[in-house]
Every structure is written in structure tokens, then in C-alpha cells.
């Protein structure tokens, strides 16, 4: 049996070398942890092949390092992720199991958006009794109108460096994107004037960068602690909060369970806004700029008295 085993190991190695020496692929594979980074990278390299690990219907904190993702990660040329521990529950396992030499910590093939942003609310001291708090700060930075240009610039530079033959095109597409973004941002700024000073009840801090930028208060959270699902006792406590009177609506993301929001909505007779937390396949929200515009549209319709000026 011993010699049989030795033969089978050689056989495996022979099969392996055969499979590995297949011709190198011509196309460029992008692995994006969240759909917003697929949308952004696609602007710069529309011809690339994209795999997106999550969708707007999924909570990006809780993805599994499942076989299909390991296979996609092993084929990828670059992985574009949020970082700041958002993917701490699954990305390390994925990187380790895929064993892709180009996509490892410190390699140019691993791009973290949060490395190129100023995160809100970083913590010097974090312990688990505080809930699922990220010491680096709030990682949901993809809805920040001011931070995205920095991230986009860094991503365009990284992609340009990895594909030198296309770097001029990538730079041109970035400039075009930037002009378009600035145009949108001016429009959002205009519309923010009417939203400023209003407040919402939220569930998790997924929309917080945008809400802060718009001047909308969002301190009442359905989650008792970050990352913990809403509990009956916390909802009852929230019900006694005097600030609830001023809240225009309850804002939750598409991937969240609507029951806690529905319960509170029935108690306080305020509408529920269910918005995608990231880009979707729908043509109205399939780029980040369109997504932010759509979120602002929905906020405006949920706060109808904006025409009369601020409260």
C-alpha cells in the first residue's frame, strides 16, 4: 500500500502540473466584496470580468467563505473590498483558502477602500460589550459624497498601475467620472438644504455618511448595540425617547428584517423607508451616483413638508 500511495501522490502532481500549464487568460478578473466596488471599478475597466461576493439583499458582515467565492478569488487579479473589519468574518478565510499570491495583505492586488478614506467615529478602545463596533471607524463609507472621489482616484491609480497598457484610458475615465460626480454632488448639496435639520430613526449605521452629509440627524437606532438585532426591550426604550416626535420616518436597508421597523411604525405612525444600502441591478440605482440621487429622492418624498422650509 505504501508504494501505491507514493504513486498516487505523483499522479496527483502530474495532473496538477497539467492543469496549471493551461494557457494564461487574457482578460482581467475583478473580485469585489460589495456591489458598490464592482460599480466603481466597472467605470474604469468596463471590459473586465467581475465577481461580486454580496448583493444589496445581503448583510455584508455575514457572508460565508463559500466554495464559489474561493474559486473566484483564486482566479482574480484584484480584490476590491471595503476593509475596516467590515469583512472580518469571511475575507481572511477566503484569502487563505484561495491562496492567490497576488491577493494577499500588502500586495497591490488587495485594495481596501477604507484605506483611502477618513472614517467616522474611530475608537481607541473597543470591547465586545459595545456590540460589533469597528475600531477603525464606521466602514460603510461608500455613500459618502466627499470621500468617494479619493477612493475612486486611488482605485483608478491602482488599476492603471496593474494594467499599464490601459492606464491612459483608465485615467480619462476617472476624470470623466469625477466631473460627473462633482456635478451630481452640487445637485445633492442644493437639495440637502431642504433636508437639513430633519431626523430619522435608523437600523445600523449603513447610511450614516450620507445622512450626516445631508445634515439629517440619525441618532435613534433600532439596534440596541451595533450589529445586534433589534430587541423588544430596546424598542420599548426607544418608544419613550422624546426625540422620536421629530423623526420623519424609519429608515432601514433592503436586506434588513422589516418587522421591528413595522412594529415601531405602527406605534408612532411614521412611515418606513426601505432603501437599498448599495447599488442594485435596477437601472435606477446601478451606479453610486444614481443610488445616492435615488436615496435623496426617497428622503424628499418621506419628508413632504420640506417645501415650507426647515423646522
Amino acid at each position: 500500500m505504501g508504494t501505491d500511495m507514493r504513486y498516487s501522490i505523483w499522479l496527483i502532481l502530474a495532473v496538477l502540473t497539467g492543469l496549471i500549464s493551461l494557457p494564461a487568460r487574457a482578460d482581467f478578473h475583478v473580485f469585489a466584496c460589495e456591489p458598490e466596488w464592482t460599480a466603481l471599478a466597472r467605470v474604469f475597466i468596463p471590459d473586465a470580468h467581475f465577481t461580486t461576493a454580496t448583493s444589496y439583499l445581503q448583510d455584508p458582515h455575514y457572508i460565508e467563505a463559500r466554495p464559489s467565492l474561493i474559486a473566484a478569488m483564486s482566479r482574480a487579479d484584484i480584490a476590491v473590498c471595503t476593509g475596516a473589519s467590515l469583512e472580518a468574518g469571511w475575507l481572511p478565510a477566503l484569502l487563505q483558502r484561495a491562496g492567490n499570491p497576488d491577493i494577499q495583505t500588502g500586495q497591490p492586488g488587495l485594495f481596501f477602500a477604507s484605506d483611502h478614506a477618513q472614517l467616522f467615529a474611530p475608537h481607541d478602545h473597543v470591547d465586545r460589550s459595545m456590540g460589533d463596533v469597528h475600531p477603525e471607524g464606521n466602514p460603510h463609507v461608500h455613500l459618502s459624497p466627499d470621500q468617494l472621489p479619493n477612493i475612486a482616484k486611488a482605485l483608478a491609480e491602482r488599476l492603471g498601475a496593474m494594467r499599464p497598457d490601459n492606464s491612459a484610458d483608465i485615467f480619462a475615465r476617472y476624470i470623466k467620472w469625477r466631473v460627473n460626480w462633482n456635478f451630481h454632488r452640487a445637485n445633492w448639496q442644493e437639495r440637502a438644504k431642504a433636508l437639513q435639520g430633519r431626523s430619522l430613526v435608523i437600523q445600523h449605521t449603513g447610511f450614516s455618511y450620507l445622512l450626516r452629509w445631508l445634515g439629517i440627524g440619525a441618532t435613534m437606532d433600532l439596534e440596541p448595540k451595533p450589529g445586534l438585532p433589534p430587541s423588544a426591550s430596546h424598542l420599548n426604550q426607544l418608544l419613550a425617547d422624546p426625540r422620536l416626535e421629530d423623526a420623519a420616518a424609519i429608515l432601514i436597508a433592503s436586506h434588513q428584517n422589516q418587522k421591528p421597523a413595522q412594529w415601531l411604525s405602527a406605534q408612532i405612525r411614521k412611515p418606513i423607508l426601505v432603501l437599498p444600502g448599495t447599488v442594485t441591478d435596477d437601472s435606477k440605482t446601478d451606479t453610486l451616483a444614481e443610488l445616492i440621487s435615488e436615496i435623496i429622492n426617497r428622503l424628499e418624498s418621506a419628508m413632504p413638508e420640506v417645501a415650507n422650509g426647515s423646522l
Binding site: I9, I12, L16, L19, I20, L22, P67, S68, I70, A71, S74, R75, R97, A98, G99
Partner: peptide
């Protein structure tokens, strides 16, 4: 020693 084979689906062999 494990090897992740270069296939469109996930396929790993190991000894």
C-alpha cells in the same frame, strides 16, 4: 499540501 485547481468551479485536491 493542497492545490486549488484552475477550474471555473471550486475544486481542491490535497494530501
Amino acid at each position: 499540501i493542497n492545490a486549488l485547481l484552475h477550474t471555473p468551479f471550486y475544486w481542491q485536491i490535497g494530501a
